[in-house]
Structure formats: structure tokens, C-alpha cells
Simulated assay, not measured.
Amino acid sequence: MGNISDIIEKYLQQMLAASDSGMVEIKRSELADEFQCVPSQINYVISTRFTVEKGYLVESKRGGGGFIRIRRARLHSQKEYFADLLLHIGETIPQITAEHVISRLQEDQLLTEREAILIKGIISRETLQLPLPLRDELRARMLRSMVSILFGRLGG
């Protein structure tokens, strides 16, 4: 059994998968009660595991009738998906954000596990032993190039 963050993430992903609308709406305090954790643990899971780079959109409303709404971002075309990826990569990208982009490509079955591991190795700080911000700039250039090649291969 994983840690509480992994368990909460898996639970929310299962809820999303079961949802006809591709969206779930939760109350942070109710979910915290269900998992017997503090509400900040729910915030942590949502802010680190359900990011735009990973293909999720999150809305929240605080207060008595507050909620957190999570939905999977679905883009309508390969061209739109490609443009969204390039936007999130930008001119510089830290390693963790780049890894989220790669995970998203893998989850969307655009990369195999082996390809994802290879790309993560190529863009890692251990491989790119350069000072910041040069390292993040080079990582972004490499990732944009790999994504462009990937979408060229897909005919997008």
C-alpha cells in the first residue's frame, strides 16, 4: 500500500474515470474526513498531482459551500494538444515540470514507458550538468524538439 498522497490521488483518478462528465467535485473537508487526514493533505495532492502539465484543470471555491472541481483537460485536436504542450514547456522548464509533461504524454498513450524513461534521462539535471538558468533553457529546447518530432511522427 502506498502513502496517503498516492491513495488519495488514485481515489480521485478513479472518480474521474467513472464520471460521465470527466469531472469530479469534492469537498475538501469531507475527503479529509474520509481519509482521516488534514485538509492541507488534500490541497497538497491536488496541487502536485493534478496540474495543468499533467493535463488537469482545477477550480476551487472557498467557504461554507466551497468545493474543489477537477477535470481532465481534453483538447479537440492533435494540433491543439501540440500547441498546449509547447505553451507549457515555454522557453525554460524545471525538471519536475518537464517530468509532468512527459507523464502526461505517457498517460495519453503518446509515449511508451521506455520512451518516457529515455526522455526523462536525457533531460535530467544529472545529464544536463550546467548552471541555472542555462540548464532549464536547454531542457526546454530539447523537450520542445522531442515533442515536435513526436507530433510530426503522429501526423499532427
Rank of each mutant, 00 (worst) to 15 (best):
K54N: 03
R141E: 14
K10M: 11
D6F: 09
E115Y: 00
L118H: 04
R69G: 02
R125A: 13
Q129H: 10
L110Q: 14
G156I: 00
E25G: 05
L138A: 05
F50A: 03
E113P: 00
T51K: 09
I46E: 06
P94T: 05
K10L: 15
I68L: 05
L16I: 05
L111W: 10
V58P: 02
I102P: 02
L128Y: 06
G65H: 08
G65Y: 02
H100C: 05
M146Q: 12
I117N: 10
A17H: 04
R62Q: 10
R49T: 07
R72Y: 02
K79M: 07
F35N: 11
G66W: 06
L132G: 03
G2C: 09
F82Q: 11
E99P: 01
A32V: 01
E53C: 08
E115C: 00
G55E: 05
Q95Y: 08
E80W: 01
L138I: 13
A83V: 06
I89N: 08
S103L: 03
S47D: 14
M15T: 01
L143S: 09
I8G: 04
V38Q: 15
P133Y: 06
T112E: 06
H76L: 13
R69A: 10
C37H: 03
Q95N: 09
L143I: 09
L138Y: 10
E80A: 14
I8W: 02
S29D: 12
M23S: 08
S21C: 04
E91F: 05
A18S: 14
L132Q: 09
